[in-house]
Design a protein around this nucleic acid. Sequence first.
DNA 1: CGCGTCACGGTTGAT
DNA 2: TAATCAACCGTGACG
Length: 369
Amino acid sequence: MEQIRFLLEHHREHTYGEVNQLGGVFVNGRPLPNAVRLRIVELAQLGIRPCDISRQLRVSHGCVSKILARYNETGSILPGAIGGSKPRVTTPAVVKHIRDYKQGDPGIFAWEIRDRLLADGVCDKYNVPSVSSISRILRNKIGSLSQPGPFEGSKQPPPQPALPYSPIYQYPYPGPMASTAAKVGAHPGAPHVGLRRSWPSAHSVTNILGIRTFVEQTGALAGTEGSAYPPKMEDWPSVNRTAFPPGQPVNGIDKAAMEGDIKYPQPAPGLSSVGSFLPACAYPPSNQHGVYGGPPGGYIPPGHPWQPQGSPLAHHGPGVTAHGGDLATAMAFKQHGREVVDRKPASPVGKSPDSLSTIHGLSIPASSS
DNA sequence: CGCGTCACGGTTGAT
DNA sequence: TAATCAACCGTGACG
């Protein structure tokens, strides 16, 4: 144990990371590792209260609350897209259409333009400019230039006008992604890890509960993380990192992985165990994932609350969306849990109270610490 | 005591 | 190439 501590600290020295009031390690400004996020959701699904999850995982309750809330809404355990510019709603193409509408009907109201953009399929409800934005465009761009589009037209970048971008990611897509996820996640190797040591309770919990199994099966994890994060997957790191050797580029993951490594080096410290442990366990070996992950769709029950049918998040963009599939997986996961659990009642799954209690016993004790 | 919320200091990545 | 900026992050504290 001490060793562990030592390692942690040592590790910390050259990596960064801060320790919160609960003794958990976090990197300011950066998302918690996916492994931890997943764990939060798993535990919640098992009926463990947020406050206990917070203590067990040593993550602030505000964070637990946020992650669970997001999960309940979107079905994803992933953090939001960090950085970068929000896709512009007023893409050149959109502006051009606005201009056209205005020219066609100088008396047109901004809200009418908005409606037309939707009606014409130029935008969808997710990326249609607000009335005020349209007004601004009319004022600033179109108003002044009466000319047709020199500016944008030519330059039209790549943006896709009608593309939906979802503020969050779009997760739900069962189809495509499993592989991605798999890749990412797949790292068999992890088991070894001495993870256990560091996080006694936690890991125990996982095993005990059999969560990990669950996860693997569902593929949620893998899927989720991997795919979901196509663009950024920042978290992966912890997970990946463990498994991934540096040179391996896994679809984009590599980068993520790397980052992860860098920043969240080892989960080891503090929650460390979690991080490392989880990942390992969590990620299904490729073969498995093949089995489970592939068919995420299957897991997803048809009408899910959070998964609106296609709508909101669903529409996905081209490539990006593909990742969503993972998400779907994730979702599946959620559903699963959800159905069973529902949060408070608890015990649904088969784990029943016993499990819980066990869990509590194991982990919670830590809280005192 | 639990938990939703938000200010804060931080990081990221597209422009 | 560097700077800007808006998005997100988790913590910590308040209610």
